[in-house]
Design a protein around this nucleic acid. Structure first.
Length: 766
DNA sequence: ACTAATGTCCTTTTT
DNA sequence: GGACATTAGT
């Protein structure tokens, strides 16, 4: 119920002292956090306690009390979160200025250094690249690129992923587990590497604790990682982990470190529970001589352990930054009391952290579903349904009903553990023509054809980018991995010697020919003896790359960051597409659909001011929703939100539905190995539930289809998630699935019929 | 020696 | 739909 009285109350509060309107409507704790003068501050903020609002208010307060916006560093968990936060800061600062006349501060939000650790690292490292001995033009590679590059290194070292041991002995069967398992595949290798780097843990320890079946390969892995590092370095590539590693290295430099630190009067970190030890080290480096640091977090919402995040960062904060003030926000402004009661019960079963009990506060009034009729006393719903099919139908029906009641689709979200859990729902939504957008899961950028196209641009940007070359060369007819290897080696040899040895000093020593020299070098590649079937394609490729290299030179003379440069990236994409279109059509089916993705990509490129920025932005902030780019624009401007729970972090909706609340899905079968993993799954479930403002529905199918190689339709019975034991489930209203009722009816009807038939048969002989 | 096509198994979460 | 192994074909 939206009591108009609440609105009035807020309006009264808003009439605050001029210059302090950013503090309006904050409760005592929030206000204390926002106005904390200086020194370390830890804000423990439970779900829905106005954490974002408080942090934004704090930034606004710092600006209002004289801190220059560009001297504030705001580290967030995702780029979207940064954007959201900064626009709030913008609003607060602007309203502050209503009474003043300092128009210069209106753009405060733009001037704050805001972004993810990775995005900020990218920005800083471009500035400090030269003295750090990095090529300022370094390319940032994403995880799949990293895997491919590592694979090349592995091949070179002769570490075959194919198991040699399996033919030696049938060692699987007998209990002697001493036989070495086969070498881990590239994805596993990168996971191991990444954990070592982010957690600051030695390989042996990581293997022992998380990958015991690979422990026999520790030495080989270390050699592999070393080769991988060298490969990256000589090709001017940084992976996502490197961004943090180099940032931390930057902070340790006796000259540069203090210089970076002195740029920022205040450092603020959101979602601190999901940072890792490396990120903590960066913060320690940033605040050696200035203790102005604010971190916000909730240990009950730590869900990124798989990425080496650790709650220890929060728990250690007071030790890391002595004299820290701790403020706890416990008043929940998001959810109705019955929802809160249920979510509190779920998290109460978790192992101890910073204990806090969320109390209901006054409901917020900025909901988009203002007019909707909501019963604030309604308990959340727990629906046991027949199967996933039935679940999908129920979810669609309920969403449409809520829409009728005035809750727009975009104020409703369906959350799930793994991206594919929404597959059936997506089909059902498509069938009923309900628009939706899906967040999380497979990325637009992971689509093969998108990677193909980007690879051309990456070569143009950084001709030593081996993975990009490899990918592109393999596209040509008659060239497989073997030949591609040779071609790429040759390319490397041709480009390697720095063309201008008189270049000033060692900063030039990265073998990165620029401009026309590069074009000339590319020309020299045209003669390389590729296999006959590939000859024509090869010539076309070299011509294309030559054009891209030339184009970028001319353009860079013209531009200097003007909007015209966007047109350049777009026109480069057109050049590439002219060459790539036939390959695409030949290689993939549904080429028309894929071509649309490339259209979308070209559209995104228009927003970028340079090719380098375009490529870096794409890897640091990949378009996260299908529909962000792809697909036709939605006509009615309304869509149901589908999201993985991880991607839903920090967000909230009026109505939330959680799918597949069954053991095996939540917690995931893959994450029940040890207590720590299972506890993280519990927190994940908690995060999902606490996204709901007014309506919460938990769906739990009774059966799941099992893909079994048999003609019969097999299924398993799934128990309700272990995170809803009897005592907790009691806080939910039991929902009904008509399909189940129908099943029952059918069954009893069948039984009745059978009885009648039997009676008739017997009657015949009476 | 290499590519291209076919078959089988597995599939978490993300900057 | 991807990763990897096997096989047919050049």
């Amino acid at each position: 119920m939206e009591a108009p009285a609440t609105v009035t109350t807020n309006a009264t509060n808003t009439r605050a002292v001029p210059g302090e309107s950013h503090l309006a409507g904050l409760n005592a704790e929030q206000r204390a956090a926002a106005t904390h003068p200086s020194g370390p501050l830890l804000i423990i903020a439970g779900a829905g306690t106005g954490k974002t609002r408080t942090l934004a208010a704090r930034v606004a307060h710092l600006v209002a009390t004289g801190t220059a916006p560009e001297r504030i560093l705001l580290l967030t968990f995702s780029r979207a979160a940064a954007k959201e936060m900064l626009s709030r800061v913008e609003g607060a600062c602007a309203s502050n200025l209503a009474g003043h006349n300092r128009a210069g501060e209106v753009r405060a939000g733009d001037r704050v250094w805001g972004g993810t650790f990775h995005a900020i690292a990218n920005r800083l490292l471009r500035i400090y690249a030269e003295p750090m001995g990095l090529a300022p033009t370094f390319t940032v590679i994403d995880r799949t690129d990293a895997e491919d590059l590592l694979d090349l290194a592995r091949e070179e070292l002769g570490l075959e992923s194919r198991g040699l041991e399996s033919q030696a002995l049938g060692s699987r069967a007998d209990a002697g587990a001493s036989a070495p398992a086969r070498f881990p595949r590239k994805a596993t290798c990168i996971s191991i590497y990444s954990r070592c780097v982010n957690a600051g843990e030695p390989v042996e320890s990581v293997l022992q604790h998380r990958y015991p079946w690979v422990s026999g390969h520790a030495a080989a892995l270390k050699a592999l990682f070393k080769a991988y590092e060298q490969r990256k370095h000589s090709r001017s590539l940084l992976d996502l982990d490197d961004l943090l590693v180099w940032w931390q290295g930057l902070m340790e430099d006796p000259e540069l470190g203090p210089d970076v630190a002195s740029r920022f009067d205040h450092v603020l970190v959101d979602e601190y529970q999901d940072t890792n030890r490396l990120q903590r080290a960066i913060l320690l480096g940033l605040r050696k001589s200035n203790a102005n640091i604010t971190v916000v977090g909730d240990d009950a919402q730590a869900i990124y352990g798989f990425r080496a995040a650790t709650v220890r960062n929060i728990l250690d904060f007071e030790r890391d930054f002595p004299g820290a003030r701790v403020v706890t926000l416990e008043q929940n402004y998001r959810s109705t009391a019955p929802i809160l009661e249920a979510t509190n019960a779920v998290i109460a079963l978790a192992r101890e952290g910073y204990r806090k009990e969320l109390r209901p506060g006054a409901p917020r009034t900025d909901s988009a579903a203002r007019g909707a009729v909501v019963n604030a006393d309604a308990r959340p719903l727990l629906v046991r349904c027949r199967d996933e099919q039935s679940q999908a139908q129920l979810v669609v029906r309920a969403a449409l009903e809520r829409l009728e009641q005035g809750v727009p689709l975009r104020c409703q979200a369906v959350l799930f553990r793994a991206a594919h859990h929404s597959d059936l729902l997506e089909v059902e939504l498509g069938r009923r023509r309900v628009p939706f957008r899906k967040f999380g899961g497979l990325r637009f950028l992971d689509a093969a054809h998108v990677k193909d196209l980007l690879a051309f641009l990456r070569i143009a940007e950084n001709p030593t980018d081996e993975t990009a070359w490899f990918r592109v060369v393999k596209l040509l007819d008659g060239i497989g991995p073997r030949t591609a290897r040779k071609v790429v080696d040759h390319v490397g040899r041709t480009l390697e010697p720095a063309p201008r040895p008189e270049g000033h000093g060692r900063s030039e020593g990265h073998g990165r020919p620029e401009g026309r020299d590069r074009a000339a070098l590319l020309g020299a590649l045209a003669d390389f003896p590729v296999p006959a079937p590939a000859r024509e394609g090869w010539r076309g490729l070299v011509t294309l790359l030559g054009r891209l290299a030339r184009g970028s030179t001319d353009a860079s003379v013209l531009r200097e960051g003007t909007s015209e440069a966007g047109a350049t990236v777009t026109s480069e994409i057109e050049l590439v597409r002219a060459f790539y279109a036939p390959l695409l059509a030949e290689r993939y089916d549904r080429a028309d659909v894929r071509a649309q993705d490339l259209d979308a990509l070209a559209r995104v490129a228009q927003a970028s001011s340079s090719r380098r920025e375009f490529l870096a932005d794409l890897t640091l902030d990949p378009p996260s929703a299908t529909g962000d780019l792809a697909g036709p624009p939605v006509l009615d401007e309304d869509w149901l939100v589908l999201s993985t729970i991880h991607s839903a972090k920090g967000l909230e909706w009026d109505a939330v539905t959680v799918l597949n609340a069954a053991d095996g899905c939540i917690p995931s079968d893959l994450a029940t190995g040890d207590v720590e993993d299972t506890e993280e799954e519990r927190r994940l479930f908690y995060v999902a539930l606490t996204r709901a403002r007014r309506s919460l529905t938990v769906m739990a199918p009774l059966r799941f289809h099992v893909r079994d190689r048999g003609p019969t339709d097999r299924h398993t019975l799934a128990p309700l998630t272990r995170f809803l034991p009897e005592g907790v489930a009691r806080l939910f209203e039991a929902g009904t699935d008509p399909a189940l009722a129908a099943d029952e009816a059918k069954k009893s009807a069948g039984a009745r019929t059978a009885q009648e038939v039997r009676a008739r048969i017997l009657k015949r002989w009476e």
